[in-house]
Design a protein around this nucleic acid. Structure first.
Lengths: 194, 194
DNA sequence: CCATTCTGTTGACAAATGTCAACGGATTTT
DNA sequence: AAAATCCGTTGACATTTGTCAACAGAATGG
């Protein structure tokens, strides 16, 4: 169950985890099943858990005053699901996170992970690199959203994350890109002609 | 000259820097003047330096195939200027960073700062908190860009960063928000009526 | 198996935003 | 002081994107 997480950490760290460190991690990250459509986090709650996805798919989104959902993050195997702002600041989240597919995840709390940081230097290193990666990905997405027209945003996304096109329907992808499903449908039709 | 940086780090850390740590930092962060319009980073270069702005204002932007500039980041006193992706990955940057006002900054390289991390635990802590803060800000901006119309994005920005409205002209703010200067001008006119 | 929901597409139209050109007042440069 | 550049605004028009409604096939749930 914890295999993918251990592998993930080792891929990021310069020195592999020792046996006792692996044990610590196994004790800290608790397996949890989240059924399709089940909430992992609801708007207004504090995000208490940081989830590593072993199997399945989740989405993070806000809901506007007209009830429309805006996808801010999509996650599948070997990704994390968490509202960092709420998790770090302990403030009520403005987002919902739910399972798009039946999901198996490994959960930990902020207190437990801060505790682990003190015991496993490799984890601090991993966290820093992960943050850097996350930060870079967000920067790119932000740049794309203000610099590129919808068609380029979609084709870049399709190139970069082909897996996601298989796992999520078009209206979810459209929302992630900040456009409507109708617009995405028309963009795709346009692209076929080329 | 290093005062604002020391204060900045102490504000983030749980324990204040010792005298010898302050000395280390002073030796690692090198003062540099950057004149208005002067490049700190040009597209295609690797971003070698991390800059803490003591005085002045800088902007980070990409230039599209039509020569239009898209502002991805604005920074003033007590902010950082760096292309994190290039700085961390050592890849050529797709951005330019230049001084919007005459600027005084404190510069360090990646090697030097990694070195400092090993000597000053408080700095690691600060870096993590700074990354978290940066990450949260980006997440909010991203959410805004896909969820809110231009008028709300502008009013939120104006509330959140009133200082920036004084320091940068409207066409720069417009670009930061992902709209044209004409649209921003019309949005402002609309808002006056309310 | 049927009923329901989900998904993607299309058309007609509305709304938001961009583009281009022009202008005047500030600011900067020479 | 004169010239040049920068800045914000406005009008006319084009383009992009959104909204609403309808439809059909696929997937899902009872």
């Amino acid at each position: 169950m914890h295999g993918p997480l251990i592998k993930y950490i080792n891929d990021y760290a310069t020195t592999p985890l020792t046996g006792s460190e692996v044990e610590l991690i196994k004790n800290t990250f608790v397996p949890k099943r989240i059924r399709k459509k089940q909430y992992f986090l609801q708007e207004g709650e504090v995000c208490k858990y940081f989830a590593f996805i072993v199997k399945g798919a989740m989405r993070q989104y806000s809901v506007d005053d007209k009830g429309a959902e805006h996808i801010v993050q999509l996650s599948i195997e070997n990704w994390w699901a968490v509202d960092r702002e709420s998790f770090v600041m302990l403030t009520p989240s403005v987002y919902n996170i739910d399972a798009w597919e039946d999901t198996e995840a490994l959960l930990t709390t902020r207190a437990d992970i801060l505790n682990l940081y003190n015991q496993i230097p490799a984890l601090v290193e991993m966290a820093r690199k992960m943050d850097e990666k996350h930060s870079i990905a967000n920067q790119r997405r932000l740049n794309a959203s203000i610099s590129f027209p919808a068609e380029k945003r979609y084709s870049d996304f399709a190139n970069c994350y082909p897996e996601f096109l298989q796992r999520f329907p078009q209206h979810i992808i459209a929302s992630y890109l900040g456009i409507t499903k109708e617009t995405l449908s028309r963009i795709r039709k346009q692209m076929l002609k080329k």
